[in-house]
Simulated scan of single mutants.
Amino acid sequence: MKIVREIIHAKGIDIGIYTKDFENEYISLTDIAKYRNDNDPRFVIQNWMRNRNTVEFLAVWEELHNPDFNRVQFEAVRSEAGLNRFVMTPTKWIEQTNAIGIVSKAGRYGGGTYAHSDIAMAFATWISPEFQLYIMKDYRRLKQDENSRFSLDWNLNRALSKVNYRIHTDAVKENLIPPELTPEQIAYTYASEADLLNVALFGQTAKQWKNNNPGKKGNVRDDANLNQLLVLANMESYNAILIEQGKSQSERLILLRNLAIRQMDTLVSINLSAVSTLPGGDM
């Protein structure tokens, strides 16, 4: 499981965020609660969780996102919610209902109570609608920055793919196209090699993709994600080498498919944006 940690800022308070598997973002309730009580934010969270409306809101969120939510235990909790004797903590909520929307993390740095962004924003609104707006403003700024970085990575890898395709087509011209071929035959050979890569990586030719996606603009490669573009760039270079080695098209298809599978499996567990943090990784 890949976890990425980030910070947003609201009215002088640093609020931690961590993302699991690049999808589910959890925001620190402990940091948000410091806006109300900097000395002991735990009590702010507990007071919020004592509220019957809060408990019911959390239950609805769990039912929408958590198939293992313990509804029976929740009913027991709800029957007590709102009473003077009712006490609820994040740990107790998690243990009793098998909740996933709120998590408790140990550690001096980065520890505390975190909640899914949906829940965290509701908590911030309960503390102060004004404070929630400041949080949302910087949260959106963070998302825009991430989208910009992703777009840049995508464009760089698209450009890299085009450079490698030039190398690849040069190899086709020098090794596969006899001088006596007609222009039509030459064009067909190029298309065949391009589709060889398309089939190896995407499982379909460019024409098949177009027929299957009549409403989309561009081509199958324009629709590719970041991982696919990076693998495609490597495949094009590898295919040029295989062509020079005299491998047949059927042999190359198998070798390229195996390469695509290995590299896609590897990239699933890698955060490509982390490349920029490596020595010499800045572009």
Score class of each variant (00 low, 15 high):
residue 69 F to M: 01
residue 71 R to M: 05
residue 72 V to F: 13
residue 72 V to D: 10
residue 72 V to N: 10
residue 72 V to S: 14
residue 73 Q to E: 13
residue 73 Q to F: 08
residue 76 A to G: 10
residue 77 V to Q: 11
residue 79 S to L: 10
residue 80 E to Y: 13
residue 81 A to Y: 11
residue 81 A to L: 12
residue 83 L to N: 09
residue 86 F to K: 06
residue 87 V to Y: 11
residue 88 M to I: 04
residue 89 T to S: 07
residue 89 T to Q: 02
residue 89 T to H: 01
residue 90 P to M: 09
residue 91 T to D: 11
residue 93 W to Q: 03
residue 94 I to P: 02
residue 95 E to L: 07
residue 96 Q to H: 12
residue 97 T to L: 08
residue 97 T to H: 10
residue 99 A to N: 07
residue 100 I to L: 12
residue 107 G to S: 01
residue 107 G to C: 01
residue 109 Y to L: 15
residue 109 Y to E: 13
residue 111 G to A: 03
residue 114 Y to M: 02
residue 120 A to Y: 08
residue 121 M to S: 05
residue 121 M to T: 04
residue 122 A to T: 09
residue 125 T to A: 12
residue 126 W to T: 05
residue 126 W to P: 03
residue 126 W to L: 02
residue 127 I to D: 02
residue 128 S to Q: 01
residue 129 P to T: 10
residue 130 E to N: 08
residue 130 E to S: 08
residue 130 E to P: 00
residue 131 F to Q: 04
residue 131 F to G: 03
residue 132 Q to C: 08
residue 133 L to G: 02
residue 133 L to I: 08
residue 134 Y to T: 10
residue 134 Y to F: 07
residue 136 M to P: 01
residue 136 M to Y: 09
residue 138 D to W: 01
residue 139 Y to V: 01
residue 139 Y to L: 09
residue 140 R to V: 10
residue 143 K to P: 00
residue 144 Q to K: 05
residue 146 E to A: 00
residue 147 N to Q: 07
residue 147 N to C: 01
residue 149 R to T: 03
residue 153 D to H: 12
residue 153 D to S: 11
residue 154 W to K: 14
residue 155 N to L: 15
residue 155 N to H: 15
residue 155 N to M: 15
residue 157 N to K: 08
residue 158 R to I: 03
residue 160 L to G: 07
residue 161 S to W: 08
residue 161 S to L: 14
residue 163 V to G: 02
residue 163 V to C: 00
residue 163 V to T: 04
residue 165 Y to P: 00
residue 165 Y to Q: 11
residue 165 Y to R: 12
residue 169 T to E: 15
residue 169 T to G: 06
residue 170 D to V: 05
residue 170 D to E: 05
residue 174 E to S: 15
residue 175 N to M: 05
residue 177 I to A: 09
residue 179 P to R: 04
residue 180 E to Q: 13
